[in-house]
Amino acid sequence: MIELRNISVTFRQKNREISAVKDVNLQINDGEIFGIVGPSGAGKSTLVRVINLLQIPTKGQVLIDGENITHLQGAKLRAVRLKMGMIFQHFNLISRATAADNIAFALKANHVPKEKIQARVTELLTQVGLADRANAYPGELSGGQKQRVAIARALANRPKILLCDEATSALDPENTEEIVKILQEIRQKEQLTIVFITHQMEVAKKLFDCMGVMIEGKVVEVNDTYDIFTKPQEKVTADLAARTLDVSLPQALAQTDQAELLRLFYVGDKADAPVISTLAKNYQVNAEIIHGKIEYIQGKPLGVLLIKLEGQASERQKARAFLEKEVFRVESVTMEGGEANGLDA
């Protein structure tokens, strides 16, 4: 288990102090894929670097399996780092060493005997699907391939923890998908705890079991990933979730006295109840579906439907009351100054 207790990181720049991380407390359980999301500049990268002490915290403690590692130095610190792999946004491979040599570097760091290095490197390259590129230099590999080499390097010494700092942010969607898949496979095979920093909600909803939302140096909300998307507590979280679930609104739609726009959220088992047809049958309203989509978060569906409800105000009110019972959440979509809510996000 990784425990961060009252972590603060303050940088000094000339005559002012910048606090990048403010009093963060986190517990990350073994075998979990824990994500930290937030806008850039929120202090996410600084926070993840605290875990392997690439960044020494100004205040607070880092505990790994109950052992306080905050003040370790020299050989003891290196021993802790051997048990933690890390991958980065820009891969950070040795550009003048082959894929195989980059991986061998981590093994040399662990004083693995020479004759065993070769076999382990081959095994790792096979694991990330690059067995045929052992002698390629990073410059000859694609972004996704470089990140796979970096993953192999990070896993070389069979760590218990893998830290990922914006590991997919420099990749195109296809390569991102590929890396996400590899990480999921690895997690299943080796009991690995993954801490993943990203600003990409796309990655968050596919990969994370649990996640924290960070803004201005603080972790403001921690929850199960599905709950973060479906029941956001803080405004930042709601904004981040809304951006992923965004159903944009045709600009031509204007709200009239006779009609209103509603956004319906469906979760889990309620997702397939025939709500809209019931609505038209039982109330004096017309329900027109404008837009809709289903997102899968950790494999669980979350549906969003945008409907236009037409009818007299009193009937609409009754209809809405019915909807609120039937679906997970109902939101009014307002159009202010000709600009649809959620359109520009």
Binding site: R81, G85, N92, I94, S95, A106
Partner: peptide, 24 residues
């Protein structure tokens, strides 16, 4: 970043000097 990544592997200074700094 490359130096940081090699520190993160747990490598000692000698190895970083020989296999990273001088090589790069």
């Amino acid at each position: 970043g490359v130096i940081e990544a090699s520190k993160a592997t747990g490598a000692g200074f000698g190895l970083i000097l020989h296999d990273v700094l001088l090589v790069e």
